[in-house]
């Protein structure tokens, strides 16, 4: 098993029994939005540092350890070296505080989303968005996300089968650009075809349940017969 999958990944949901985890998803979404907005409006180093402290506190309150915090911080601060290098090249060492401020603000703009993912289940977030998104759009998003594990499992199976038949699709082999075409042919095409067929099956199943129809679905002959048996 790869090392990263054992340790988790940035933004992975952590089930903890803390007041933060028990907060309604809508409240957490508002908090995240407000803190991101505060980061956008603010242009002072002290205010940015206060925001950093607030995020430390929020991570601590959610009982997320140093490992999770570092995982998330690594993701959000990867742009920092580029920003610092550009500013230092253009304006010299005098621009270091400004470069640090911009780097911190860039990081603070991305951190809320990761914290939200760490502390809130996807289903809870979807329930909140289902309140104000159009119901048909919410259905498409929910279905697309619902079948992610299935597609992932199928993708893994296709990957192992192709490996067994000797296709050069392993990540190590992808360093060689000559293997990219094989990756497209052996992995991308079967996975995408499987997704298309899955979309077919889901749409047919949804239609039969009357989803997306203006009139409710008519009971099938079989269900009518079953009803007659139960309630003669």
């Amino acid at each position: 098993m790869p090392r990263d999958s054992r340790r988790g990944f940035p933004g992975q949901y952590m089930a903890r029994s803390t007041p933060i985890q028990r907060l309604p998803a809508a409240v957490k979404l508002c908090m995240v939005g407000l803190l991101a907005l505060a980061d956008l409006i603010n242009s002072r180093l002290t205010a940015a540092l206060i925001l950093v402290l607030i995020w430390f506190l929020l991570y601590a309150l959610a009982r997320l350890g140093w490992r999770q915090m570092l995982q998330d911080a690594r993701v959000v601060l990867y742009q920092a070296p580029l920003v610092v290098a550009v500013l230092l090249l253009r304006q010299g060492m005098a621009a270091l505080p400004a470069a640090l401020l911009v780097s911190i603000r860039l990081g603070l703009l991305c951190l809320p989303g990761l914290w939200l993912q760490r502390t809130t289940r996807v289903s809870d977030i979807l329930a909140v968005f289902g309140r104000f998104l159009p119901s048909r759009l919410a259905f498409v998003i929910t279905m697309s996300l619902h079948f992610v594990p299935l597609i992932t499992r199928e993708a893994r199976e296709i990957y192992w089968l192709q490996q067994l038949r000797g296709a050069r699709v392993a990540p190590r082999q992808l360093i060689n650009p000559l293997c990219w075409a094989e990756w497209c042919r052996c992995l991308a095409i079967p996975i995408f075809m499987r997704a298309l067929h899955l979309a077919d099956e889901v749409s047919v199943a949804a239609r039969q349940r009357g989803i997306g129809e203006d009139t409710p679905a008519q009971p099938t002959l079989r269900s009518q017969l079953i009803c007659r048996k139960v309630h003669p």
């Binding site: 809320p112 989303g113 939200l116 977030i125």
Partner: peptide, 11 residues
């Protein structure tokens, strides 16, 4: 989706 689940880097 990236906005809803905070997967984006740029909001």
């Amino acid at each position: 989706m990236s906005l809803l689940f905070g997967m984006g880097h740029a909001g």
